[in-house]
Design a binder for these strands. Structure first.
Lengths: 357, 357
DNA sequence: GGTTCGTCTCGAATCGATTCGACTCGAAAC
DNA sequence: GTTTCGAGTCGAATCGATTCGAGACGAACC
């Protein structure tokens, strides 16, 4: 045990005490290079006596040029970000792989619209790579900064910068596939509830000029386009003001459903499971039964234990996505330069869709 | 822009180009010490030309003995930990304060029962402090390791080691207070749903030997004791097998409620809001209305947007708790040695409690 | 006996900054 | 005209490891 306030022992102290050189002591702890059994024993004993807990990570990192940490940039307040179970699933898969390296995950919250503030937060941080997770559409000032520092970047679609290695989903095809499922059931009056098209979008109908057809890699845009590939370019769509949120879904649901029956859609295709759950609440508040009076679909394939339905959804395999992300990061740190990946998705039919009455 | 594969420019390169010494260049970036306006300008220009994005964080950290990151140890898989909205609120408050330092939060998942594995994960990480969040009862091997390294530790009650600075709640008093509210409403047959007493606890009735009255700082233990202070030492209590979880609440709820009416409790006091929500689901599955047929209370005071009730609960002000934790960390890094803090809690009466019929 | 080889150990250079004390120089004070 | 002072700059030491090339030594081989 080390006396309080006293300087922590260094490798040099240990080496001195064990009667070996610093380089030999280093070899003992790193395990590289041959060391005689007896020498190793002496060094370890000295370390124990002095309360040396291993090489100073900072010094070691400096020498090796590795910090052992990757940054995870989440947009908006942490609380909001972590309300999204899909995001958490991705993070979980990521952590699973990184633990084996081992590499830590440094959380970096980026209050949206905070502009360059994130750069000041990032600048003093030693990171081996950065993952953009839980980020919405739009440019991100962090990208330029990190690119200049030569830090490898990864994301799940947004930001869509070419300097970022991506694990994507064919959002448009996936959006079309689930829309087609609804269409095949016989629905004709179908509405869409989207996540915001732009960082500046406000809740309500999606304005035409917010949809940029070249941005299909942005989930909200791609899924909307897929939906319209099936139900036509003018099929009704509203967006939430706050990403994938239950409240956003409820509000959108009320707006869509609290109308005379003949105008009311018989199905709602939502861009996330959480939004879909919100829509279902809105429907039930209005006395509509799901799926008898209204079919609802989600997107993501997350587990919503409190939802008394099995949602029809497009399973994105969030955890697996995180694992893939982790593998890419690992490979990159090993020196290979991985290419973008496209992940398959899978339609999972639950109990929230049925033919219209 | 730096050519790919080329070495990143260092402070030395910048100094050379600007025609000043390295020390002067350092002063320009750190802002300490006087530098002539013109010199500063020259150095910044040189930096821009070379694509120098600021001093290497690793080198800087080594010199200053600060890494700019604190560790956040979460027990169990990330996914599980982040399912707990209270934990997220705390993290959110913590982040809010740390952002201003600025200091990053390094997430360290500690699969429960993994024993010393966490030490291997921790050892190569440079951390200025560590916060134990989302940890259950029981010893934690990380504590000894971090203590030996002289890294300041903080927690919200568990682990309860003396080497850790604590932000606590008087769990027992809080547990008693909410129990008393239920008692005052007139309930006499009241059951308790607890989080696990021990890391090894399994779902079901709480065995007497798992309750150590000296461990009132452990939330599950303290709250149970508080409950029994009001309803007597033998008042029925079951525990979940997996902490604060909705499913755990549902399972416990079914066990407690699916019995003949005369044996059925008229109120259930749960140790967390999420558990309470699970109990409510169980009740509704059995055709019981809340609060008419069954009163249910929670604990934490989190926001459960999907729950169609306002839960009667003990508000722990999670975000504020996180902020306090952050302030303690900051103070400690500034050199003062903060003392433990006890946070007040507040009973919030909602729509899930009523007098028994 | 002289090479060769392998094992083990070591000294010195290095990673990229920060910081302290010393030095220079021009302006102000006496 | 000297002394004093402060602003600005710099060289060198330092943070605590890792790593490379070289050296020592004993064993095996011809």
């Amino acid at each position: 045990m080390v006396a309080r306030g006293q300087a922590r022992p260094t490798l040099r102290d240990v080496a001195e005490r064990a009667g070996v050189s610093v380089s030999t002591a280093s070899l003992v702890f790193s395990g590289k290079g041959p060391v005689a059994e007896a020498t190793g024993e002496r060094v370890r004993a000295a370390a124990l006596e002095l309360g040396f807990t291993g090489p100073n990570p900072l010094a070691s990192s400096l020498r090796q040029g590795r910090s052992g940490a990757i940054g995870v940039i989440v947009e908006g307040r942490l609380r909001m970000a972590f309300r999204d179970p899909f995001a958490i699933a991705v993070l979980d898969g990521l952590a699973e792989v990184l633990e084996t390296v081992p590499t830590g995950m440094l959380l970096i919250g980026q209050p949206s619209g905070s502009g360059d503030a994130v750069v000041h937060q990032l600048a003093p941080l030693a990171l081996d790579a950065v993952v953009f997770s839980l980020c919405g559409p739009g440019e991100n000032p962090a990208v330029a900064h990190l690119a200049a520092r030569g830090i490898p970047m990864f994301s799940t679609g947004v930001p869509g910068d070419r300097r970022i290695t991506q694990v994507r989903v064919d959002e448009r095809a996936a959006g079309a596939a689930i829309a087609r499922h609804v269409q095949d059931l016989g629905h004709r009056r179908v509405a869409h509830v989207a996540m915001p098209m732009l960082p500046t979008s406000v809740a309500g109908p999606v304005p035409g000029d917010e949809v940029d057809p070249s941005e299909t890699h942005v989930p909200s845009v791609g899924r909307l386009l897929g939906f319209r590939d099936v139900f036509g370019p003018d099929a009704p769509a509203v967006q939430t003001g706050d990403g994938s949120s239950f409240e956003g879904g409820t509000i959108a649901g009320r707006a869509l459903l609290d109308v005379p029956e003949r105008e009311r859609p018989t199905a709602v295709v939502a861009q996330s499971d959480v939004i879909a759950a919100g829509v279902i609440l809105a429907a039930e508040e209005l006395g509509l039964r799901v799926p008898e009076d209204l079919s609802v679909t989600g997107f993501d394939g997350v587990d919503l234990p409190w939802l008394p339905h099995r949602l029809t959804t497009m399973d994105q395999h969030g955890r697996e996505k995180g694992r893939i992300l982790g593998t890419l990061v690992r490979k990159r740190l090993d020196g290979t330069r991985p290419r973008n990946v496209t992940q398959p998705v899978e339609l999972r039919v639950g109990t929230t869709t049925a033919p219209p009455r």
